[in-house]
Nucleic acid binder design. Structure first.
Lengths: 211, 211
DNA sequence: GGGAAAAGTTGAACTAGTTCAAAAAAGAAA
DNA sequence: TTTCTTTTTTGAACTAGTTCAACTTTTCCC
């Protein structure tokens, strides 16, 4: 009985360790962090599970968190004038997720964040993030660099949205995120590419003939 | 004769002061800065004039600078696969300009930056900017906030590029940047909106009939 | 395992936006 | 002012992508 409890405890601890290990690796892609700083950094994060089809954020709410995905897959979308769902982006393990507009300006979001699979995230709220900026100077640099990189990625996507045809965008997408495409339906991919799912189906047919 | 030299000096000084006043106001939109910090902040910036049709950056070059426009108007564009010019954005007085992708990753840029009018900019290079991060801690915060805001703006544009028709995007553009539209040709506006200039002309005709 | 719901396919008719070409208008240069 | 270049307008033919509707296939869930 003791043995059982002990094993349970060990497995919980190793689970927590892995969770934060992923976060640490993510941070160290940008710059290195000391053990002490990292421990302080993780303190204000809390863990949350979101079942498939549940929402982490709904349009109209103020986005109170910035999140790091440790398991699963989520989509960030909004409704356009005709009430159509438009997917801005997806987030899987090792990605950050938030509505930066709503989060930083404290205004109601127009975005929805929904889990496409059973997912887990580490969340931090705005006041705690502000506190981190104060406590650990390098956090300021960390988020500056991260924001810059996100911005570069979005700029690249903007370039491809402006200048490329649907076929080209689809090919680019599957080459860039092969793991992601496996986990998504064509409806979702179409909505991300900004085309109808019927047309995506026709593109896929055309491409499969070419190979 | 002395009087003349003195007047000249005064006018040069006041010119420099105004130049930096614009920069200071721009910074203080995001957070406040002490006189001492501001003086140190401005030191590494150098002033450059770019005549109309001259380039501040050409595709293939590494973007060595981050710039603040104090006069004129520039466009940032790239050539798509068909060799068509696609304008990513414009920058007028009080705007920042760089290819953040090339600048931060030290890689050749795919973008061109060209002056559409005789223009003046304040430029800072990457090593000097790095030094500023070291010397003045708040600079880190400043650029984090600025990058966040640019990112929010780009995200909004992405949403509108994905979900709106050309008419809607055009209306949005002239409502958002009425000053800017005055200074641009329809060719340039069309290239920014991602449509042909002929089609823009037809949209304008349709809209003018409605009013 | 079976039934319902959601996802994917296909074709036909349509629409938003493009391309090409030619003419008119506006700007810039000299 | 005249000339040359660039911008803008217009129409006609075209194409990329949409919408609708019917059907098939897959997934979900009880």
């Amino acid at each position: 009985m003791y043995l059982f409890a002990e094993l349970l405890l060990i497995s919980i601890l190793s689970y927590l360790r892995n969770m934060f290990e992923l976060l640490r690796k993510n941070i160290e892609k940008h710059l290195s962090i000391s053990d002490a700083d990292f421990e302080q950094f993780t303190k204000p994060f809390y863990h949350r599970k979101i079942a498939k089809k549940q929402f982490l954020l709904r349009a109209g709410q103020i986005c109170k968190f910035e999140g790091f995905v440790i398991k699963g897959c989520l989509r960030v979308y909004y409704l356009d004038e005709q009430g159509q769902e438009r997917i801005l982006y997806f987030a899987i393990e090792d990605w950050w997720i938030t509505d930066i507009d709503s989060f930083t300006n404290n205004t109601p979001s127009i975005l929805n964040i929904e889990a496409l699979e059973d997912s887990e995230v580490l969340l931090i709220t705005q006041p705690y993030k502000e506190a981190l900026y104060e406590q650990i100077p390098m956090v300021e640099k960390l988020f500056r660099i991260m924001t810059q990189k996100t911005h570069v990625a979005l700029q690249r996507r903007m370039i491809s949205a402006l200048g490329k045809t649907a076929d080209e965008r689809y090919i680019e997408f599957i080459e860039k995120y092969p793991q992601l495409e496996q986990r998504l339906t064509q409806l979702q991919v179409a909505s991300y590419l900004g085309i109808s799912h019927e047309f995506l189906s026709k593109i896929r047919k055309k491409l499969s003939k070419l190979r």
